Computed example of a mutant assay.
Amino acid sequence: MIGLVLAVTAFGYSVPQTVVLVFVALVVGLLLAVQFYLTIGLSVYRSVKQTRRDRVESELRGELLDRLFAEDPDWEAWVSDLSSVERDVVESLLDEHLRELDGTEAETLRGLGDALEIPERAGRRLEAGDEYERLHALTWLTLLRRPGPYLESSFEPRTPRERASVVTLLEQTDRLADEETGIAILLDGIDAQFTVFGQDTLYRVARRDPAPLLRTASEAYQTWPEPLLGQVLAVCAQLETSVRDGELAWIVAVLETGTEATRAAAADALASFGWRGSLRNRAFLERAVNDPSPRVRNAVYGMLASWGDRAALEVLQQALAAETDSGALTAGMTALARRQDHFETDPGVMLGAAWDWSLEHVEYDRLARRAETQKVR
């Protein structure tokens, strides 16, 4: 405020500080009043618009369903007579029903999307919109099974969400050349983690052929941020026996040199690959069970129990006999108890009373699950 008074004085004028304060108060009051009326006006506009939508929605829903099951829905003629508000409502109804229906009904509804010119508008949004509009456009193209506007555009997905949406579109329309292409779109040059939807997309592509994912991860995992690496490892943990071949040395490297979170995720991933003889190296297993983090040891114990072979279970028993963390000990004991049919000698000799408690816990869990299953039947 002093600066303002001095600046005016520099031009030869002397304005009292009180006058300056009154002027500032008037300006602030005027701005607040304008903001208030704009807020009220916007609320009234939205209320009127929603009322108009509610008034026509029931009628339009009935008309849509009648045409859907008619011999000739004649979407073009219907759409040509709709107002702008009615078209918006019909688009919302189309989105809702396409997510619920499949087969012949869904394909018939896609004709309504063509009549509303949604694919054409989606193509324009891909070229000129922001990320939200591009994602909205890709979602519509996927629902309508119309990849053409994307394939004909110059749009290249950049964010993880855009990458996942493009792969889903191509996969759902049978235009994904192969899993190698899908993995390349998802992971090449990526520097941020996926949403849950993106992680699920990565899993669906990798499940069909894990080799491209494992190969890409082997080459690029050291450049990925920790959250993304954790997501890829979580996907690998779900691949299980679908991995007939592929490089796993990078997962072993993460288990031995990664952060606490990624080491635990690597152990979870390796739990599915116990049939790989190259993983059952005694020295490697002993290093793994001696990890300084209880969280990682917990995951390693689960990995060894999941493998279930004699060498792995022997290492697991010895590690649990020396375990000092109560959480890791409990989790490891429980995992081992679920493998009780794999032992030639009773592990209780080495593990003591904790083994008896774990057996009781596992047995109780098994009986509870059986009772629940019988109740459902």
Score class of each variant (00 low, 15 high):
249 A>G: 12
80 S>Y: 04
98 L>D: 05
27 V>M: 13
308 G>V: 09
236 C>D: 02
83 S>M: 07
253 A>S: 14
71 E>A: 10
201 T>P: 03
161 R>E: 11
137 A>M: 04
137 A>Q: 05
243 V>M: 03
176 L>N: 09
239 L>Q: 02
317 Q>R: 15
11 F>Y: 13
42 L>D: 10
109 L>N: 09
99 R>G: 11
294 P>M: 02
43 S>D: 09
354 A>C: 07
336 L>K: 08
104 T>N: 11
358 S>C: 10
28 V>N: 06
185 I>F: 03
54 D>I: 06
67 R>P: 12
211 A>V: 14
324 T>E: 15
198 G>T: 02
347 P>F: 09
50 Q>K: 15
345 T>N: 13
182 G>M: 04
105 E>H: 15
320 L>D: 00
166 V>Q: 01
81 D>E: 14
174 D>T: 11
155 F>I: 00
302 G>H: 07
6 L>A: 14
274 G>N: 06
310 R>A: 15
28 V>F: 12
177 A>W: 01
364 Y>F: 10
150 Y>M: 04
351 L>N: 07
361 H>T: 15
222 Q>N: 03
341 D>P: 04
38 L>T: 11
219 E>F: 02
366 R>K: 13
105 E>D: 14
192 A>D: 12
333 M>D: 03
36 F>D: 04
37 Y>L: 10
206 A>G: 11
294 P>W: 02
288 A>E: 02
5 V>Q: 13
362 V>G: 05
17 Q>T: 15
129 G>Q: 06
179 E>R: 07
65 L>K: 14
238 Q>G: 09
314 E>R: 15
253 A>M: 04
46 R>T: 04
323 E>N: 02
289 V>F: 04
287 R>L: 06
301 Y>S: 05
140 W>G: 01
154 S>E: 10
140 W>C: 00
280 R>G: 00
60 L>Y: 09
58 S>T: 13
327 G>N: 08
104 T>C: 01
213 L>E: 00
179 E>Y: 00
213 L>R: 00
269 A>Y: 02
268 D>S: 10
45 Y>N: 03
113 G>S: 13
297 R>G: 04
12 G>C: 12
257 T>S: 13
89 V>Q: 08
317 Q>K: 15
287 R>E: 05
302 G>R: 05
324 T>A: 14
194 F>E: 01
346 D>E: 14
133 E>A: 14
125 R>F: 07
242 S>M: 08
165 S>W: 02
355 W>G: 09
369 R>W: 08
55 R>M: 08
76 E>G: 13
245 D>M: 06
267 A>P: 08
333 M>F: 09
110 R>T: 05
252 V>H: 02
230 G>Q: 02
196 V>P: 00
84 S>C: 01
24 V>Q: 08
358 S>P: 02
240 E>S: 10
89 V>L: 06
215 R>H: 13
269 A>K: 06
106 A>L: 11
157 P>G: 01
344 E>L: 14
198 G>P: 06
360 E>K: 12
109 L>A: 11
22 V>G: 07
89 V>E: 03
133 E>I: 06
